[in-house]
Design a protein around this nucleic acid. Structure first.
Length: 479
RNA sequence: CGCGGGGUAGAGCAGUAGCAGCUCGCCGGGCUCAUAAUCCGGAGGUCGUGGGUGCAAAUCCCACCCCCGCAACCA
């Protein structure tokens, strides 16, 4: 049987437009998904949108739109952005899909029947104007920062999840690595959380309107609790046991570091309570700053990935984002360097190499001997690329890209040493050298597929054609 | 006493004990098949500071300094 690989991104909150951070996580997931497909694995790549909760309802109101209309529009925006980036997801999950609700109801029922839920009273500071609860620390002079009125103490009857009962087991699973939390630093961080206060939390809301019903109680399910369940609802939990059995547990939940607590602690605890297997790996990558500043709407330095695609194309955008710093760490992105890096890596390296080899081949009549006889260069390139699988599997995309570009550099050096242009165009030695270069380029193109699918396809097409011709530059130099 | 990450060439990073490396940029030279691309060579670092252990420390230990996240929108 084929090995299966189930990878997820978080489902993104449709409160706002997609930005470069959403793109980053999703591109990384796509690289892994494409890699596993190329290995012949049966891959399920899930992404989507989280559409419930008061914040969404408020935003809709602010824009004078109905909630349904609003989420429809924003979800479409996310899907379109990912399509523009050439993300090949298998399902774009939306928490407003009826199937999601169906699975969620079954899961919540399971939790309740297992005795993992109990009724309790939530007491909080409630602002009538905002129709929302505040924490003490968020108040200004004891007043709501927006309406400038003191909030009332309001008690709400909620259902709570017995998180504390499941913590020891979750901790065990993380410590033993049965739930791998990566990178290592994140694992330490999560284990550190167990020393702090982790309390039972309420899984329902009485006052929220825009959300999923909690088992016909008139309460709504807390949006996080329900959103996490997209990972199982998308593969048919409670609805399609065959499908569910095939894909679950997830091989990787990929996300940024801000939501690791929900994924590494709350989510496994809920799964354990409901008698469902826990995910195999939780990987949280870092945040980036833009030109040394934190990315934020208030600073107005948020980058729209669609703008990058317009300027550089999908492949180059994917490449440039992953190139910036080692995956998993925090790092800084300087947009001003994008052009320089585009030229250095894409125009000068692979783009130029393709041109020069294509021209040489064209001069020799556009056809080459078949590859059986003479293949040293290909083998050489393979040696340069030998670490690539491990690098991608441990999500060191940065290292993987540098491996690929080292191989390209090597090819350029070979060509300079061989000087094929000094030989007669029909010379057998020349043809055999060119055959080697072409094989090398093809090898690199295949390695590049997860990162730059269009480029990979174009190059393979160009060099496996009957007549190899120069064609247009892959990455025209930019100034 | 908060938690965590980090301080190595102009920039971005690798390097957990054995002559300090990579990529980009910069400078000089070569080449002309190629997108002023490519190839060869070069300059540039007292590895945050001060102590300690070792034959040997960027790497281990101690102290200190500095930067960035951990409040909101938010990957």
């Amino acid at each position: 049987m084929k090995k299966k690989f189930y990878i997820t991104t978080p489902i993104y909150y449709v409160n706002d437009k997609p930005h470069i951070g959403h793109a980053y996580t999703t591109i990384a997931a796509d690289v892994l998904a494409r890699w596993h497909r190329a290995q012949g694995h049966d891959v399920f790549f899930l992404t989507g949108t989280d559409e419930h909760g008061d914040k969404v309802a408020e935003s809709a109101k602010k824009q004078g739109m109905g909630v349904e209309e609003f989420v429809e529009k924003n979800a479409a925006e996310f899907e379109k952005t990912f399509t523009n980036l050439n993300i090949r997801f298998d399902v774009f999950m939306r928490t407003t899909f009826p199937e999601h609700n169906e699975s969620v109801q079954i899961f919540m029922r399971k939790l309740k029947d297992a005795g993992a839920l109990y009724e309790g009273v939530y007491q909080g500071l409630y602002c009538k104007g905002c129709e929302d609860f505040y924490m003490e620390k968020d108040l200004i002079d004891g007043k709501c920062p927006i309406h400038n009125i003191p909030p009332e103490i309001v008690k709400e009857k909620n259902w709570f999840f017995k998180l504390e009962s499941y913590l020891p087991r979750v901790r065990e699973l993380i410590e033993s690595g049965e739930i791998a939390v990566e990178p290592e630093a994140r694992k330490n961080e999560v284990l550190g959380l167990f020393k702090q206060e982790l309390k039972d939390f309420s899984v329902t809301r009485e006052r929220v309107r825009w959300g999923l019903d909690f088992l016909g109680t008139g309460q709504k399910i807390y949006v996080w609790v329900e959103a996490l369940q997209n990972y199982i609802s998308a593969v048919g939990y409670g609805r399609d046991e065959k499908q569910f059995k095939k894909w679950w547990p997830a091989d990787v939940h990929l996300m940024a570091k801000d939501i690791i607590k929900f994924h590494a602690i709350y989510w496994p605890a809920m799964l354990i309570a409901a008698g469902v297997e826990t995910p195999k790996k939780i990987y949280a990558h870092g945040f980036f700053s833009l030109d040394g500043k934190k990315m934020s709407k208030s600073l107005g330095n948020v980058i729209d990935p669609n703008d990058l695609v317009k300027k550089f194309g999908a492949d180059a955008t994917r490449f440039l984002l992953l190139l910036q710093f080692p995956f998993g760490q925090d790092g800084d992105i300087k947009e001003s360097k994008f052009v320089e890096q585009y030229n250095a890596f894409l125009a000068n390296s692979i783009g130029n190499l393709v041109s020069r080899v294509a021209t040489l081949v064209e001069q020799s009549g556009s056809t080459l001997p078949s590859r059986q006889d003479l293949d040293e260069k290909k083998i050489l390139i393979k040696r340069f690329l030998k670490d690539l699988p491990q690098e991608i599997e441990r999500m060191d995309f940065n290292a993987a890209l540098s491996t690929i570009f080292t191989a390209l550099k090597n090819l350029n050096e070979d060509i300079a040493r061989d000087k094929p242009w000094e030989m007669e165009v029909g010379d057998e030695g020349r043809l055999s050298l060119l055959r080697g270069y072409v094989d090398g380029i093809l090898e690199v193109a295949r390695a590049l597929e997860p990162f730059m699918p269009e480029t990979s396809k174009a190059v393979i097409h160009q060099f496996t054609a009957k007549k190899i011709t120069k064609g247009r530059p892959l990455f025209p130099r930019m100034s």
